[in-house]
Simulated assay, not measured.
Amino acid sequence: MSETTTRPAARTPGAVRAQPGEHVFEMAKLNRILGGPDYSSAVGTCVEGERMIVALMRMAAGTGAEPHSHPNEQWIYVLEGTFRAVVGGQPCEVPAGSVLYIPADVVHSGRAGEDRDVVFFTVKDASHGLHGIKA
């Protein structure tokens, strides 16, 4: 895409929207956004396609996301640290190397442990943006 071409807006403010012929995204070089501006401490980068949204996020030790939901389902793959979540009222401890599934419209929250940041890769369907709705 040339510098003079306008990139169509992503569903998520600050995210990158993939364009035809664009296949590789260096996450470390993309615009950093909040994972949930009014409910979460997660910060990272996000790329949106036609049907999928991916994001690489970091949540500082001892911080987290307040209860929220979104109309799209979500997968969270924990790369570093331990993510302590509550999904639909059920506590879940998600260590590095594990994946957490969050169904659509289910209220959930999560926190990084007190001793270490959590780094996670998340995937959502593109029926809604990355950001959820605070419960």
Rank of each mutant, 00 (worst) to 15 (best):
M27A: 01
A28S: 11
A28M: 10
R32Y: 10
I33K: 05
G35A: 03
G35T: 01
P37M: 14
P37Y: 00
D38N: 04
Y39Q: 07
Y39L: 14
S40K: 03
S41Q: 11
S41F: 15
S41D: 08
G44K: 03
G44F: 04
T45Y: 04
C46V: 01
C46I: 02
R51W: 15
R51T: 11
M52F: 11
M52Y: 10
I53A: 13
V54M: 11
A55D: 09
A55N: 12
L56N: 00
L56S: 01
M57C: 06
M59W: 00
M59P: 02
G62I: 04
T63S: 15
T63G: 04
E66L: 12
H68C: 03
H70R: 02
H70P: 01
P71G: 04
P71V: 06
P71T: 02
N72T: 13
Q74I: 02
W75M: 09
I76L: 10
Y77D: 08
V78I: 12
G81M: 09
G81P: 12
T82C: 14
F83N: 08
V86P: 14
V86Q: 11
V87P: 09
G89V: 02
Q90T: 13
Q90S: 14
P91S: 13
P91Q: 09
C92P: 10
E93N: 08
P95V: 10
P95N: 12
P95A: 14
A96V: 07
G97A: 08
S98G: 12
L100F: 04
L100S: 06
I102D: 05
P103G: 03
A104R: 07
A104M: 07
V107Q: 03
V107E: 05
H108I: 05
H108Y: 10
H108E: 05
S109A: 11
G110Q: 05
R111I: 15
A112Q: 01
A112L: 02
A112I: 06
A112C: 11
E114Y: 06
D115N: 15
D115I: 14
R116P: 13
R116Q: 05
V118A: 03
V118I: 09
V118H: 07
V119P: 07
F120D: 00
F121H: 15
F121M: 12
F121G: 04
